[in-house]
Simulated assay, not measured.
Amino acid sequence: MTRSISGRVAELGLALEAAAAPAANYVSCVQEGNLLYISGQISRKDGKAAFLGRLGDQVSDADGVEAARLSALGVLSQIAAATGDRLDRVARVVRLGVFVASTPDFNRQSAIANGASDLMVEVFGDAGRHARSAVGVASLPQGVAVEVEAVVALAQA
């Protein structure tokens, strides 16, 4: 297995964008002890918000899964920035919080969140298996369909 996060992502036919800067008065990630807390990452493509709208309305389930995957790539970009792009620094993905902008009657948030969860397992193997919440919300920043936050346990440097 490749020793860098970006290398492992490339093996999957994907690419990491530069870690997004915070959009307001917060930081993108905070390390406390061996835990790395990553602020919510929205779905971005080529540096711009992607997959705008709500599930159950303008956004299809397939596009929602892809939006979750893109949001998870943003999380991976933050992890790479915090660890010097070292795959071996990630002991475990502890938790994902997945927020899905959806209509009141939409009830497949967990299926959409699998886009993010599956990517974590593809990148980190068993260490990518995590606890998760998938929550439907009325709207998200910049009008995106999905936002993902994470808690990651780091191995000793």
Results as ranks from 00 to 15, higher is better:
D126A: 15
L70R: 14
K48P: 10
L119A: 00
V30Y: 10
R54K: 12
E149I: 13
A131T: 15
V151M: 08
T83D: 04
G74F: 04
S43I: 06
R69Q: 12
V137M: 09
A23L: 14
D63A: 14
M120S: 01
A101T: 01
V144G: 09
L16Q: 05
S139N: 14
A101V: 05
A15G: 11
V151Q: 10
A82T: 00
R44F: 00
R129E: 06
A20N: 05
Q109F: 03
M120N: 03
S133C: 09
G84F: 02
A81H: 11
Q31V: 15
G53I: 07
E149A: 13
S43G: 03
R132T: 13
V151K: 08
A111N: 09
L119T: 07
R92W: 00
E122H: 12
D57Y: 12
L87K: 06
N107A: 15
V123N: 05
L73P: 07
N114S: 13
L96R: 03
A150F: 07
A23E: 13
R95D: 10
R44Y: 04
C29S: 14
V144S: 06
H130R: 10
A19P: 00
A138N: 11
L76V: 01
D85T: 00
S60D: 08
D118K: 13
S39W: 12
L119P: 08
V148M: 04
A20R: 10
A15M: 08
V148C: 05
S60V: 04
A138K: 09
A131S: 15
G128L: 02
Q41G: 00
Q78H: 08
E147R: 11
L70N: 08
P104H: 02
A24K: 12
Q58G: 07
D105Q: 15
S102N: 14
V30A: 13
V93E: 06
S43K: 07
G115W: 05
P22C: 00
D63N: 13
V93D: 05
S102H: 12
A91S: 12
A138C: 01
S39Y: 09
G64E: 05
D63I: 11
A111D: 14
V146Q: 06
A82V: 02
L73S: 05
A113L: 01
R86I: 03
Q41W: 03
